[in-house]
């Protein structure tokens, strides 16, 4: 990974650093990383605002998992004139790249965690209205039990002020904590909101894509060398081939309507006479989007219906009707 040179807009007092991406789900030195202090948590502006929006639109408390990664932060050795040399040789920076919330059924973190075990869970968040901005008994207990698992140890707390009269102005408060397993305590950690703009250019080269799409081009790979049984290996190959074929089919469905051949006609002398073709392509895209939007709308309303139904059941149990 290339070292980042501090750009013009960046905070000048920050020492130049090397960022190395580490994934915690494959921890070669997980215990060593546990001991490293956490320098800060960074989150992109859109992720934070969508998190706040999720909290604001939830009818009551909301909880969920935070996804992201930890990066190793090593102060550069050339930085001799640093006024306060860090006592630790290196520290960690956590980057929140996404989140999932448990919706209206709080206390369901366990099942969320099971369903998202393949993603890099770095911590969790809790949002509760009109309550003090410090961890509660429940939150402490959850953080403690999560930290006994492999990695998650970031805790993001969202609250609204106590005297929130639900007026036109919405105020949200948030704070990020780092659960220190050895000290069994929370440490407030600075939250760095990363936005788009010249001041944040330094962050771009630290970006590593984290995509849900199948990785392409798909290189055909044999089974693991450990597998000695030839037949089993063939089976694996067949399964892999099937998957490749399926991925290919999915991709073609995505690209239907704009094959490369027709796209090449968009440039050159033919282009003027091809306006109709472009419009057709455009309409197809719009129709596809429309269809997708309809599907999303339909499923969303089904989810809402279910949520309302569940809520009614819960209220009936509690005698609130």
């Amino acid at each position: 990974m290339a070292p980042i040179s501090p750009s013009g807009g960046e905070n000048k007092s920050a020492p130049p650093s090397n960022l190395t991406s580490l994934s915690l789900s494959s921890p070669p030195s997980s215990s060593a990383m546990e001991d490293l202090p956490l320098l800060k948590v960074s989150i992109s502006g859109p992720t934070l605002s969508s998190l706040i929006n999720r909290f604001a639109s939830a009818s009551s408390n909301t909880e969920g998992l935070l996804f992201g990664k930890f990066s190793l932060h090593t102060p550069s050795l050339t930085d001799d004139d640093s006024p306060s040399p860090s006592p630790h040789p290196s520290s960690l920076i956590a980057t929140v790249t996404g989140f999932i919330s448990s919706g209206n059924s709080p206390g369901d973190l366990d099942s969320l965690l099971r369903r998202n075990h393949h993603r890099h869970v770095i911590g969790w968040f809790s949002g509760r209205r009109r309550s003090p901005l410090r961890p509660s008994l429940h939150e402490f207990a959850v953080s403690q039990s999560l930290s006994s698992a492999d990695s998650p140890r970031i805790f993001l707390l969202l609250t609204t002020p106590f005297h929130d009269s639900q007026s036109l102005i919405h105020t949200h408060e948030y704070r990020v904590y780092h659960f220190v397993k050895s000290g069994n305590c929370f440490e407030a950690t600075p939250l760095d909101v990363v936005n788009i703009g010249p001041a944040f250019r330094g962050q771009y080269s630290a970006f590593s894509p984290n995509s849900e799409l199948p990785c392409l081009p798909y290189e055909f790979q044999g089974g693991s060398p450990m597998k000695e049984d030839e037949k089993e290996r063939e089976n694996m190959n067949l399964r892999e081939m099937k998957r490749v074929a399926k991925d290919q089919k999915d991709l073609e469905a995505y690209a239907a309507g704009y094959e490369l051949g027709s796209l090449s006609r968009l440039v050159g002398s033919d282009a003027v006479s091809y306006v109709g073709g472009v419009e057709e392509l455009y309409e197809k895209m719009l129709a596809k989007l429309d269809c997708l939007a309809n599907q999303v709308e339909g499923s969303s309303s089904k989810v809402l219906e279910m949520e309302i139904h569940n809520m009614k059941l819960r209220h009936r149990v509690a005698g609130l009707e």
Partner: peptide, 8 residues
């Protein structure tokens, strides 16, 4: 802090 949405 109880939660009216999750009364149990």
């Amino acid at each position: 802090i109880y939660n009216v949405e999750s009364p149990l």
